[in-house]
Design a protein around this nucleic acid. Structure first.
Lengths: 109, 109
DNA sequence: CGGATATTTCGATAAGTGTCGAAATGAAGC
DNA sequence: GCTTCATTTCGACACTTATCGAAATATCCG
């Protein structure tokens, strides 16, 4: 994962509605949710939600499939894992995350 | 860590110069680097860097201490760990991260 | 085809972000 | 106290982001 992709992903998650949407999709699992469902559950106007979903999609964090009239969105776990891997690799090493700050008794991260 | 803090942290990292700065500080370790050093190493004008450092600082990702005339910045590993913990908890569970997508042979995170 | 439903695109607007030179602040040393 | 060095604050600018109603697009069904 290149730094530019990481920035896109971080930027996509760095917004209230979008983080909420993503968390909802993660909780929901790979079956996903229709755009309308998400809008209703989170109380976000359709056009606003559409904007946010496209941001998440461009960042590669969610995938989209059509099912009848609905577009079903679901979290892309592979991307999220790649993001976590990058952060663990590049933002937690170098005598941080391992020894400092958190004692890390077992498998804390 | 509250969702608002997470958003602040993600937003702080979601920018080229800032992610670069943060990675540099993580690599450097807790002794940290003076603002001027960072500016020189990354080729960022002092005033721009100052802006970015304050964003990182507000987000709690870096800490600041004065040493003579210089301000030394260093990565706050505890905050980063808290961020990782939130993401692992809220954005990787629910049959993702564990089983799906990445096979996770061992401790891939 | 025509109507109903789900979602996106458009357009306007308000607010936030990134950039960087110039001026201001803070600390140290003579 | 004056000078020097390190850094921040200010101000101006261009650019991006978030918001949401109205209109357009896509799909299904009878």
């Amino acid at each position: 994962m290149k730094q530019q992709d990481v920035i896109a992903a971080l930027g996509a998650l760095a917004q209230d509605s979008r983080l909420e949407v993503f968390r909802l999709l993660v909780r929901t699992g790979k079956e996903g949710l229709a755009a309308g469902d998400i809008a209703q559950r989170l109380g976000i106007p359709a056009s606003s939600l559409s904007f946010h979903l496209s941001q998440l999609h461009e960042a590669g964090l969610v995938s989209q499939r059509r099912e009848g009239r609905s577009l079903i969105y679901s979290a892309d776990y592979a991307s999220m894992n790649a993001l976590m891997a990058f952060l663990t690799e590049n933002c937690c090493e170098g005598e941080g995350c391992e020894a400092t700050a958190a004692p890390r008794t077992a498998g804390a991260c």
